[in-house]
């Protein structure tokens, strides 16, 4: 690992001053960053330790629930408020990584984690995300894990988070602070598609610090499910994952949220499929129709052709669980 400077600025303001400088990177849990630094994928000149900042709180706010950027994934997943009010988030967090990693990883770090595309990690291979202009090894290469939505001819990597799939489904907001003040970014607009600049994962500006996320109150607690399909039962990244939340009135779907992981450069919200669910009866047929709508426009790359079948099947299954059909 390349040498770097380490600093722990005393205050939030001092952190914001420090991260504004080129070559500086924030470290919180370090589960992704330290790995990337060991492999030489990233080599910051300076690490800014923010673990002491008071950003671990999980508390109700007007109209929702606030979760601090430094709250640990394990703590959030078992928090009573989260389990009671936002079980989808708890389920998604528990589906991610391992207990050890969840004890280290923070909410802010989870949002900012990089893709696990093997070509991004292997510094001897081309990767437009790691080294813009070098090409994409995954297109025409090993692309079993890769995107079926929103990819470009520069990059077909996927965002690896489970937590973010739940947060986009729940219409969360990311709160960030910079020298200019705070701003609120709707979760669906936080991450970006690769386009011409796959090196940019998200729309966080230079010098911005994530303070936390806010999840608006909802009526999904009773009928939510996170289903993650992977190559082994646990501790693996998603081939496809589905976050499904329903609000039922008798047997009728009053409101619905659907999002997928493992299929795009960002957590992938399925707005059209949601519309196809609302007002319909809870039934396998309703879910199948929504699942078919969800995969319209999908494009595969050889190794991931199977996702055309796996994705809708996973959506249907997740909806059956969420609605109580199974």
């Amino acid at each position: 690992m390349k040498q770097f400077q380490y600093s722990r600025p005393a205050t939030q303001q001092a952190v914001i001053d420090a991260i504004n400088k080129p070559g500086a990177k924030i470290i919180a849990g370090g589960t992704n960053l330290v790995d990337l630094m060991k492999r030489g994928v990233t080599a910051p000149d300076k690490l800014i330790d923010i673990n002491h900042l008071p950003l671990k709180n999980i508390a109700p706010v007007k109209g929702g629930l606030h979760i601090g950027a430094l709250a640990l994934n394990s703590v959030v997943s078992e928090n009573k408020l989260v389990v009671a009010q936002q079980p989808l988030l708890s389920m998604a967090l528990k589906a991610g990584a391992s207990p050890q990693l969840r004890n280290m990883a923070t909410v802010g770090g989870n949002i900012l984690q990089r893709t696990r595309c093997a070509y991004f990690y292997d510094t001897t291979m081309p990767c437009n995300k790691r080294e813009p202009g070098s090409g994409c090894g995954a297109i025409g290469g090993y692309n079993r894990m890769h995107a079926i939505f929103g990819a470009s001819d520069k990059c077909i990597a996927v965002h690896p988070s489970d937590m973010c799939v739940a947060l986009v489904a729940l219409d969360a907001t990311v709160i960030v602070q910079s020298k200019k003040g705070t701003r609120r970014i709707p979760f669906a607009d936080f991450h970006r598609l690769p386009g011409e600049h796959p090196d940019l994962d998200n729309n966080l500006a230079a010098g911005e610090l994530i303070l936390g996320v806010e999840i608006p109150d909802n009526n999904f607690a009773k009928n939510s499910y996170y289903l993650k399909i992977r190559d082994r039962q646990s501790y693996a990244f998603a081939l496809v994952s589905v976050a499904a939340s329903l609000e039922l009135e008798g047997n009728t779907i009053k409101n619905a949220r659907l999002a997928m992981g493992g299929v795009a450069h960002k957590p992938w919200r399925l707005v059209e499929a949601e519309k196809a669910l609302i007002g319909k009866p809870v039934s396998a047929e309703t879910f199948n129709i929504a699942a078919q709508i969800a995969i319209q426009g999908a494009k595969t790359y050889g190794g991931n052709d199977f996702k055309l079948k796996l994705a809708p099947a996973t959506i249907t299954e997740a909806l059956k669980h969420a609605s109580g059909l199974v």
């Binding site: 470290i27 370090g30 589960t31 330290v34 330790d49 990693l101 004890n103 280290m104």
Partner: peptide
């Protein structure tokens, strides 16, 4: 008291 992966934990943290 909490289990972690020591390989990804920087000593300074």
């Amino acid at each position: 008291g909490h289990r972690v992966n020591s390989c990804l934990t920087l000593g300074v943290l």
